Computed example of a mutant assay.
Amino acid sequence: MPEEIEFEIVPPVVKDGSSFEQITHRSSHRLFFFPTLENTGELLYCSCLFEVHWLRMADYRRKNLNTLGVEYVKEGSLLAVQNGREYRVGTGEIFLMRPGCESEIHTGPEGHCRKNSLALHGPLLPAVLHASGLDQVDKISEIDHAGFEALLERFRVLSTEPDRMIRRKNGALSYELLRFLQFPQPEHATPERFEKIAQSLAENPGQSGDLNTLARRAGCSPNHLIREFTRCFGTTPGRYLHGKRMQRAAELLLEHPELSVKEISSAVGYSDALNFSTAFRKYFGNSPLQYRKSHS
């Protein structure tokens, strides 16, 4: 387990009959933030994507908030309670913290949980949830993981764009997310050979990612690989690998402060630390050292 770096009990926040409180106990976290769209006329929007590694005792409770919280478990589990009903949310499952409900999530029995959290807002949200039936859904177990990961990556990329582009694209992408939650099962099964390519890129982001090499491993032409990989995962193999490299670099910056930027750049497949720093700044909006300092 990574070294524990943060433990904090946040006092309850109460406003207009709604409230939330939390115990922050985590080893790493990343926030992809979107400029506030409240009071701008936006009917539906996502305010943030939060990636966090919870440790034992981490806890979050909310009551009567008008947002939809989407909790996607990447590793470990959550124990959740909503309107008196209890759930265990395992790896690869989603829990919806519905608007107006009394909800609670905390670390599962494994003692840790890597998860992605999104917060959806807007005056259109209640109507969409009701029309789709999501206002009666707490937990989603069978999902198209590749499709959902592709959606998360699009939110990450969106957070790096100029404010005007975020305002233009955020609502449409938020609606796509809600539609995914309504129809979460895969429309087409992902062929095993492409699943293995994606898994290899995610687990070994330091590899070269040469398209011809990947195509040979998949037993197809480079053009066929690009077409089918994009259909299955929503992005090309190169962009997919780039996202995994940046995510792994961010983890190393926070979890291994003893590593230099040059060492981290090499670990994620860059031979030149300057090129890595430029790519990292473009992806996250901060240099590697600024990112480490702001999250320490």
Rank of each mutant, 00 (worst) to 15 (best):
P2E: 12
E4S: 05
I5N: 06
E6G: 01
V10I: 15
P11T: 07
P12A: 14
K15R: 12
G17Q: 10
Q22S: 13
I23Q: 08
I23V: 15
T24P: 00
T24L: 15
H25C: 12
H25W: 07
H25R: 15
R26P: 00
H29V: 04
R30C: 01
F32P: 00
P35W: 12
T36D: 13
L37T: 00
E38H: 11
L43Y: 07
S47W: 06
S47I: 02
C48D: 04
W54E: 10
W54M: 11
R56L: 11
R56A: 14
A58N: 02
A58W: 01
D59M: 12
R62I: 00
N64R: 10
L65Y: 01
G69R: 01
G69C: 05
G69Y: 03
G69F: 09
Y72L: 13
Y72G: 03
S77C: 07
A80I: 01
Q82A: 14
G92K: 02
E93I: 05
L96T: 02
M97C: 06
G100C: 06
G100F: 00
C101P: 00
E102S: 09
S103Q: 04
E104H: 15
P109Q: 11
E110P: 11
G111A: 07
R114H: 11
N116A: 14
S117Q: 09
P126M: 08
A127K: 05
V128E: 12
G133C: 06
G133F: 07
D135A: 10
Q136D: 10
E142L: 12
I143A: 05
I143F: 13
D144V: 01
H145A: 08
F148E: 13
F148P: 00
F148Q: 11
E153Y: 10
E153K: 11
L158Y: 07
L158T: 02
T160E: 15
T160G: 15
T160S: 15
D163I: 02
R164C: 02
M165Y: 08
M165T: 08
R167H: 08
K169N: 11
K169W: 04
N170R: 06
A172F: 08
L178K: 03
R179N: 12
Q182E: 15
F183C: 05
F183L: 09
P191S: 05
E192V: 09
I197H: 04
I197C: 04
I197Q: 07
E203A: 13
N204W: 07
G206H: 09
S208V: 14
G209Y: 08
D210I: 06
G219P: 06
N223L: 08
H224E: 10
R227T: 07
E228W: 03
E228H: 09
F229R: 03
T230M: 09
C232Q: 06
T235M: 15
T236L: 12
T236N: 05
G238H: 14
G243F: 10
G243T: 04
R245C: 02
M246Y: 05
M246E: 15
A250W: 03
L254M: 13
E255P: 00
H256Q: 14
P257Y: 08
E258V: 02
K262E: 15
K262I: 06
E263L: 08
E263S: 13
I264T: 01
S266M: 07
V268R: 00
G269S: 14
G269F: 09
A273P: 00
T278N: 05
A279Y: 04
Y283M: 09
Y283H: 15
Y283D: 13
G285D: 08
N286F: 09
S287R: 13
P288E: 06
P288V: 06
P288S: 10
P288W: 10
S294G: 04
S296V: 01
